[in-house]
């Protein structure tokens, strides 16, 4: 009997945990909305957070984008050779970097760098009573800790991802002229062939939603953390896993609804 009931119980517990997390997440979102008006508390932290979340993420994003661009160019050439004109390498690198790989890969990488860092910092503050201390000193901890991070993430992810897209295209171009017997005019011709400014708007919008996701999920798991060092570890891991999953779901959702 236990063998039958155990999975049912497990499923029930997991469902309750998810419903409870969604409920707490919704409550935190409402509180964050309310805390927006406390500009005096989140305002001074916005620029430092934009630097920490955005500017400091640029090297990682550029590194990933550069190698993505190289691989894309080589693989496109490998696929097209003998069947499709090689200038289509420029089209594939540009289109793929802008629409998909720039935002998604960078978003996933930043869910590790930014999400984990936010979650562990806020979770440590929670378990060491620093959040209680903030409250006891008449601060609104959500305005102080959560709001500037979420705004900074929403504003800076598009900037970082735009740079990553540019780097990916430049890396693809350099690879094309260095390794693929493709001249610059051919690469540019391919790049311009299917270029649409709407794609850039789409990528930037999508990136902003990834920024909101990564910072909100990190803040949520950090803020609701319990249980000492183990809890901090759990909050960090969950942030990376959940924000990566949401990024992939959002990626598909925006593609289905906006393209």
């Amino acid at each position: 009997m236990n063998l039958i009931l155990a999975p049912v119980r497990g499923l029930g517990r997991a469902t309750l945990a998810v419903v409870s997390a969604v409920g707490r997440g919704a409550m935190l979102s409402v509180d964050a909305g309310r805390s927006l008006r406390r500009v005096d508390q989140w305002g001074p932290h916005l620029v430092p957070q934009m630097i920490s979340i955005g500017v400091a993420s640029i090297p990682l994003a550029l590194f990933i984008a550069a190698f993505t661009g190289i691989v894309l160019a080589i693989q496109a050439s490998y696929t097209f050779v003998g069947t499709v004109p090689l200038y289509f390498v420029g089209a594939l690198v540009g289109k793929t970097m802008i629409l998909e790989l720039g935002p998604a890969l960078t978003g996933l990488a930043l869910s590790g760098r930014v999400g984990a860092s936010n979650a562990s910092e806020i979770a440590t503050m929670r378990v060491t009573e620093q959040i209680d201390a903030l409250e006891s000193l008449a601060y609104d901890p959500i305005a102080y800790l959560v709001v500037p991070r979420v705004i900074a993430g929403t504003l800076m992810f598009p900037v970082v991802i735009a740079l990553a897209i540019a780097m990916g295209i430049v890396a693809g171009w350099l690879t094309s002229i260095a390794l693929l017997d493709l001249a610059t005019p051919q690469f540019v011709r391919g790049l311009r062939l299917f270029f649409d400014t709407y794609d850039v708007q789409f990528a930037m919008f999508k990136s902003a939603t990834f920024g909101t996701t990564v910072t909100s999920v990190g803040a949520f798991f950090g803020y609701t953390c319990t249980g000492g060092a183990r809890g901090v570890g759990r909050a960090t891991t969950r942030t990376v896993v959940v924000s990566s999953m949401i990024i992939l779901v959002l990626d598909a959702f925006w593609a289905a609804t906006l393209l």
Partner: peptide, 9 residues
């Protein structure tokens, strides 16, 4: 409020 483990930032 004086916290048990100080709770310094």
């Amino acid at each position: 409020y004086v916290f048990q483990f100080a709770a310094l930032f």
